[in-house]
């Protein structure tokens, strides 16, 4: 089983009404095969986060069609979108989005509990994922006791809790130092192959974007194949085959 395929046609999204309306997505198209790795860059306010919100079912598409595998998100009810987020999507936030009152393991178990998983299975799944991100020994620590990189690895583990077929990451390295960034990038890169999912990430980090199979820049409400990844950015994290490749 591979990741979820993405088919977006004519997606439009705007904020506000009438004269004060701000169009952030304008007839946007994108096609991603299952198991793909897509990086989206763009200026602040370009609409990257809005696009991720729509793909992740946090926002309903205002115009156009968004089909993830067989699911047309436009047809889903409020509960249907919640089920879609739970069963199909894993989110990784820049601010980590971990609940401070829960331990690392409990944060992962929370996602499992929303799927109705039984306690023993939840504990087992949390243990398995924490081991996969190298944080098993920190399972009983609360987020406040973890470093930024560790928190993001826990957040990635939580995103994988319900075996999502689409992982959406919003500036996953935005709050991390260089050492942690590298570890997180490696982890994210491994997701499509190791966890059979499609990875779409939004980033300002050119090094991270350079490693994607598909790279786009969101500009004027539409996606443009990216051409601005520099050689030094790409080689900074090592890309022996196509250090300056662009989509």
């Amino acid at each position: 089983m591979s990741g979820a395929s993405i088919s977006v046609q004519g997606l439009a999204h705007r904020y506000g009404r009438a004269a004060a309306a701000l169009t952030v997505l304008d007839r946007l198209d994108i096609e991603v095969d299952g198991g793909g790795y897509v990086a989206i860059t763009g200026a602040s306010g370009a609409g990257k986060s809005t696009l991720l919100s729509v793909l992740g079912g946090l926002d309903a598409p205002q115009r156009g069609t968004v089909v993830i595998d067989e699911n047309d998100l436009h047809d889903l009810s409020r509960n249907g979108l919640a089920d879609y987020r739970r069963d199909t999507v894993g989110f990784v936030f820049q601010h980590f989005g971990l609940l401070d009152t829960l331990t690392a393991a409990e944060n992962i178990e929370l996602a499992c509990s929303l799927d109705g998983m039984r306690p023993r299975a939840r504990r087992s799944r949390a243990r398995e994922l924490l081991e996969a991100v190298g944080l098993l020994e920190r399972r009983d620590h609360r987020p406040t006791a973890l470093s930024g990189g560790e928190r993001q690895r826990v957040a990635i583990a939580r995103a994988l809790a319900n075996r999502p077929r689409l992982v959406l990451a919003d500036e996953p390295t935005g709050n991390l130092d260089d050492g942690s960034t590298e570890r997180v990038i490696e982890l994210l890169e491994s997701l499509p192959a190791d966890h059979a999912c499609t990875l779409v990430l939004v980033t300002h980090d050119r090094r991270l974007a350079a490693r994607a199979q598909q790279r786009y820049e969101l500009r004027g409400g539409r996606l443009h194949p990216s051409t601005k990844v520099t050689t030094e950015h790409a080689t900074a994290i090592g890309d022996p085959e196509e250090p300056d490749a662009v989509a």
Binding site: L58, N79, A82, R85, G90, F91, F93, L99, A111, L114
Partner: peptide, 12 residues
């Protein structure tokens, strides 16, 4: 926190 729970699949 509520938003995060919804993002990871929490229903209303």
């Amino acid at each position: 926190e509520i938003g995060v729970m919804k993002a990871i699949g929490g229903r209303d």
